[in-house]
Write a protein that binds this DNA or RNA. Structure first.
Length: 345
DNA sequence: CATCCGTGGAA
DNA sequence: TTTCCAAGGAT
């Protein structure tokens, strides 16, 4: 089984900025654990296409884990802005600092040591030990869940089927080339055994695939239905001072958009109370900012005002006009700015 | 085990 | 327009 998959990978492996491909590996090239770790954290619930530019930006600015460990929190959060799941960025920095201070700047190699680190769970610990250190660890991500569900025609819905899938996946993992194998099974899921319209004609495992034989493969894996997203409302406040400075606040570390820059806002719920950060003459933007998060839709009314030079806001800090970078905002906040900007001159 | 936590592309 | 989903982790 693993042999046919590895043969397929040898000719079909995707190229990525962080990947040491099968040909390079055969020539003895070793992956850089820092780059594997960084890519794996960025890839958590995030597409390869979205990650690429962030990976290049991070590795250019912080080439080694010790460089990242010394970075300012605000710089890392700003560089992560737009990628989502911001707890990953906070944990990334924590993890880099633990490795710098407690591991002498050297990545631990074993699953047991890796999973103790912030932001590294079962999948990422397996992925780093397999891909960076060629250990016989089994990765079980969304791709593997789909491939294995189809291969064994597993009809139990996720997440209940996860233990069974993990057991099967472990049985499949070979002692030879486990790092290439881990990437191979994920590439298979990403390019052949896709959620919709799988390309079974090109699959190295089609002959052994119980789902293909049963004709059930396209329905798998089954998943427990998701609850519909409610809609929440809120107010966002864009304040400009007479010198052009702009009022922003750093959100608390915990919770939604934790640690990120944003506009002062009311609570976001069914019937929010207005919560202006200063006393001012507010102008409401005609169009609401709309954004969908993982578990709710949001509609924000955008209120703008200009205040004089000695204003002291109840929350947030004024940021200089030229220091303000919309790109350092999470997407919902950037949408607010895009609506407010025309009225700000 | 359930919930929370982003975003953008595809269909 | 809405839904689905992508190399998940923390609580």
């Amino acid at each position: 089984m693993s042999k046919s998959l590895l043969a397929w990978y040898d000719k079909s492996a995707r190229e990525m900025p962080w990947r040491v491909g099968p040909a390079e590996r055969r020539q003895g090239v070793q992956p850089d654990p820092y780059r594997i770790w960084l890519s794996e954290v960025m890839l958590q619930q995030t597409t390869v296409a979205a990650v690429k530019s962030y990976f290049i930006a991070f590795t250019s600015r912080w080439p080694k884990v010790t460089d990242l460990a010394e970075a300012l929190d605000a710089d890392v959060m700003s560089a992560w802005a737009g990628l989502g799941y911001y707890a990953r960025a906070r944990n990334l920095l924590k993890c880099a600092r633990v490795i710098a201070s407690e591991h002498d700047g050297v990545f631990p190699q074993t699953y047991e040591a890796l999973i103790k680190l912030p932001g590294i769970g079962p999948y990422t610990a397996s992925a780093i030990s397999a891909i960076a250190f060629d250990a016989q660890s089994t990765v079980v991500d969304g791709n593997v869940e789909r491939v294995v569900s189809r291969l064994y025609d597993i009809h139990t819905p996720l997440p209940a089927s996860k233990p069974e899938i993990t057991a099967k996946a472990e049985d499949l993992t070979p002692p030879q080339r486990p790092g290439d194998y881990a990437q191979a099974i994920m590439d298979l899921g990403a390019t052949i055994c896709t959620p919709r319209n799988p390309v079974c004609g090109l699959c190295p495992w089609r002959a052994q695939c119980a789902g293909w034989a049963a004709g059930t493969h396209t329905e798998l894996p089954k998943k427990t239905p998701k609850t519909p997203k409610p809609t929440r409302l809120g107010y966002a406040y864009v304040v400009r001072r007479e010198d052009g400075a702009i009022l922003l606040e750093t959100r608390p570390d915990k919770g939604l958009l934790g640690g990120m820059l944003g506009w002062p806002c009311s609570d976001w719920n069914d019937a929010p109370e207005p919560a202006p950060p200063v006393t001012a003459d507010w102008t409401e933007i005609g169009e609401e900012a709309r954004h969908t998060f993982t578990h709710f839709h949001l509609r924000l009314k955008v209120l703008c005002a200009t205040v004089d030079q000695n204003t002291t806001p109840e929350t947030g800090n004024f940021v200089g006009k030229h220091q303000f970078m919309p790109k350092s905002l999470p997407t919902v906040m950037r949408k607010v700015w895009d609506l407010a900007k025309p009225t700000q001159g």
